[in-house]
Every structure is written in structure tokens, then in C-alpha cells.
């Protein structure tokens, strides 16, 4: 069970949270092709390494926020507001190519 630092409430146990999957996805416009829409709707990377994802403190304050997690070690490199880009330290740590997709 992970220990996750909620942006409002601080470190809490994982079972207070729900994971909303990959973050920073961009929704294509209404006029997007079927292919583009399917890519957005169904296809996700499955990196071995860094993964940017969004979580909600569902059993707490209710806030959604972003989180950078290493999928092998579960190390959480950063927690940041839902509206922000990942901090620099995360941008510099690319996921390992191995195991992606």
C-alpha cells in the first residue's frame, strides 16, 4: 500500500485514494478522425519507469492532483496540482524505453 502525499492533506494511505490513470492527455477536438479519437480513448503507454498519473483523494478532501510514480519501485518523485506541468526534476527523468507499450 503506497503512501501518497495529498496536495491538501499531506501523506495518507493509498486506500483513501483512487487512481485516474495517465495524466496530461490532450483530448482531440470534435472533428478528430476516428483513428485519433480511438488513440486518445483506448491506447495508453505502459512504461517501465516513470509514469505521470492523476489521483483523487476520494476518502479525504476530494482533490484531484498529479503524481509522478516509478512503476517498478513505486517511488513517488513528485506530487503537483492538476493544472500544472510536471516539475523540472520529472521532465529530466525519462521513462525507460523497455516495456513501453
Amino acid at each position: 500500500m503506497l503512501r501518497i502525499r495529498c496536495i491538501h492533506c499531506g501523506p495518507r494511505d493509498e486506500n483513501e485514494f483512487v487512481c485516474g490513470g495517465t495524466s496530461h492527455l490532450t483530448r482531440p477536438p470534435l472533428g478528430a478522425s476516428d483513428g485519433e479519437w480511438a488513440e486518445y480513448l483506448f491506447f495508453r503507454d505502459n512504461p517501465k519507469g516513470l509514469h505521470l498519473e492523476r489521483w483523487r483523494h476520494a476518502q479525504g478532501c476530494g482533490a484531484w492532483f498529479n503524481l509522478a510514480r516509478h512503476t517498478v519501485t513505486h517511488e513517488i518523485l513528485a506530487v503537483y496540482p492538476i493544472t500544472e506541468r510536471p516539475p523540472a526534476i520529472v521532465e529530466r527523468t525519462p521513462p525507460s524505453a523497455e516495456g513501453s507499450r
Partner: peptide, 13 residues
């Protein structure tokens, strides 16, 4: 309610 919150906070902040 959870879906509304997710749309509001994550997509239409």
C-alpha cells in the same frame, strides 16, 4: 458526482 468532480477539476478547471 465523482464523474462531475473529475471533469470539473481535471478538464474544466
Amino acid at each position: 458526482a465523482a464523474a462531475f468532480e473529475e471533469w470539473l477539476q481535471c478538464e474544466y478547471p
